[in-house]
């Protein structure tokens, strides 16, 4: 079942009529997609569009089946709220929904343990290192009650041990939730993805057939 579809999508540079992106995009339910591209090619802009923060140009058609989105922002320093403790940062999206779920709270505690941050759950973001803040950002995304998870370069400031743990945990959700992960490194192709997109010449190319089979299986 298609959950995101953009036809003749156009996104311009802010304050300009020049196209940053001109593309088509089709995502199915529970796809695990990775988008790889160089700096400045429009990766974060695409995520901004998917959450409704930036609008496509009028000529585009856009369908998104999801209401709320779990979003792991690239700016991990600015992404955590300094007035909230780690656990309150993680549970904030959950607390703002009408249906509070204890299983998600327990999942948050479990994830904190897996990243060795459980003892620091009552600390504030300014007491953490950059990498630890990014881990909290990832945990919050995983604990946001949404079926669509967006990750914007989530491993960029993590230590290799934490990258492995994070990849493992995010990988566990493959096939269970719709995941879009932005990356600028092909290392992230080690994740159990089934869709692979690249940013080329202001376009988003579905390169799944070319690449994924090389790394994973012959599904496509």
């Amino acid at each position: 079942m298609k959950v995101i579809e953009i036809k003749d999508g156009q996104i311009n540079y802010i304050g300009s009529n020049k196209n940053l992106l001109k593309f088509n995009l089709l995502i199915h339910e529970n796809d695990f997609s990775i988008f790889v591209g160089k700096n400045g090619c429009g990766k974060t802009t695409l995520l901004d569009t998917l959450i409704g923060f930036r609008q496509l140009q009028n000529s585009s058609t856009y369908y998104n089946a999801y209401d709320t989105v779990a979003y792991c922002v690239q700016d991990f320093n600015g992404g955590l709220f300094p007035w909230l403790s780690l656990i309150n940062n993680i549970l904030l999206p959950l607390k703002t929904t009408s249906n509070y779920r204890n299983d998600i709270e327990n999942y948050a505690f479990d994830l904190l343990k897996r990243f060795n941050l459980f003892d620091r759950k009552n600390d504030f973001p300014y007491q953490l290192s950059g990498g630890q803040k990014q881990v909290v950002n990832i945990i919050r995304t995983l604990c946001t009650p949404s079926k669509l998870l967006l990750f914007d370069e989530p491993f960029s400031s993590l230590h290799s041990d934490n990258i492995n743990v994070a990849r493992l945990i995010i990988g566990e959700l493959g096939g269970k939730k719709t995941i879009i992960l932005i990356s600028h490194t092909q290392d992230d192709l080690l994740l159990p993805i089934n869709r692979y997109f690249t940013f080329e010449n202001n376009d988003i190319c579905d390169s799944t057939k070319d690449k994924v089979s090389l790394f994973l299986n012959e599904k496509y």
């Binding site: 959450i51 923060f53 709320t68 979003y71 922002v73 700016d75 709220f81 904030l92 703002t96 946001t144």
Partner: peptide, 21 residues
């Protein structure tokens, strides 16, 4: 902070939640 704006949009926060949190 623009990142807060991104998050509140992604989470579809109500006006009360935006104000409070």
């Amino acid at each position: 902070n623009i990142t807060y704006k991104r998050l509140q949009t992604a989470w579809k926060l109500s006006l009360i939640d935006k104000l409070r949190h």
